Simulated assay, not measured.
Amino acid sequence: MALLETLAVIVLVALVAAVAVYVKTRLFPLREGEEPREDVAEYISMMVSVFYALVLGLCLVSVWDNRADADDRVQAEASALHQTYLLADALPAEQRGPLREAARTYAGHVVDVEWSRMAERRPLGDEGWALLDRLRSAGELHGKGTTSQQIAAQEVLAQIGYVDDARRGRETAAEERLSVVLWAGLVIGGLLTVAFMFLFGLNRSSTHVILVMGLSGFIAFTVLLIHQLDTPFGTELGVSADPFTRYFSR
């Protein structure tokens, strides 16, 4: 619906502009002997190119920021989970094994199950949160324990809190996507930018062919790059699960 509403607004504004031009030419026609001004078309072409460059820049910044945020979240989550695993040495002997196993299980679930879901923009489900609750329960100190064990248990819970926060950020980053309004601007602006090249004496010379090919190819490349970065976990340019697999080798 948002895309249709955006296109409807664009078409409406274009029609209003067309009516304005028609009214102007009917009410204020060119005087006898007055030549039409070609620089108007050049000015419009220049403004379209400038606005399209702004849209491209905005889209690139938006998707890159989301990708960078996703990477930071993954790094923080894996690091905090690894610290939790290491802190198991300071807990009572009977709790070390369950805490380490819970940490390994959580990391395996993130890599084997959630990563493909994030790449496909599917909901992560509740399994990961249940495993995180299991990890938190395993890190709680059962019984009084020594002073050092109590301090370690508090640090374990603090690290699990970091895991929780980073996980929420990772889930949010996986669901973020570029606005349909910006996608409409990318497509329509690209078409207009290329179309305006045909207004200025374009012929079949090799120079013009190369210019059109170069501009069209570069616009296509930029749009594809934005599309790749718009899926922060699902493409060659996306965030990998290396932080988890590095700390928790399979």
Rank of each mutant, 00 (worst) to 15 (best):
E140G: 10
L141N: 03
G143S: 13
T147Y: 12
S148I: 11
Q149A: 12
Q150H: 05
I151N: 15
I151Y: 13
A152P: 12
Q154V: 13
A158G: 10
Q159H: 11
I160P: 00
G161A: 13
Y162E: 14
Y162C: 08
V163C: 01
D165Y: 15
D165M: 15
A166E: 04
A166T: 06
R167A: 05
G169M: 14
R170E: 02
A173L: 11
E175R: 14
R177A: 10
L178D: 06
V180T: 07
V181D: 00
V181P: 00
V181N: 00
L182Y: 12
L182C: 05
L182V: 08
L182D: 06
L182H: 04
G185Q: 07
V187L: 14
I188W: 06
I188F: 06
L191I: 15
L192N: 02
T193K: 05
A195M: 14
F200W: 14
F200E: 15
L202Y: 12
N203P: 13
N203H: 08
R204S: 09
H208K: 09
V209R: 10
V209S: 07
I210W: 04
L211M: 09
G214W: 01
G217W: 09
I219H: 05
F221S: 01
F221W: 08
T222F: 07
V223K: 10
V223P: 11
L225T: 12
L225C: 08
Q228F: 07
T231D: 09
P232E: 02
P232H: 02
G234L: 05
T235G: 09
E236Q: 03
G238L: 02
G238N: 02
G238Y: 00
D242G: 01
P243A: 00
F244G: 00
T245S: 06
Y247K: 04
F248T: 03
S249M: 05
R250S: 09
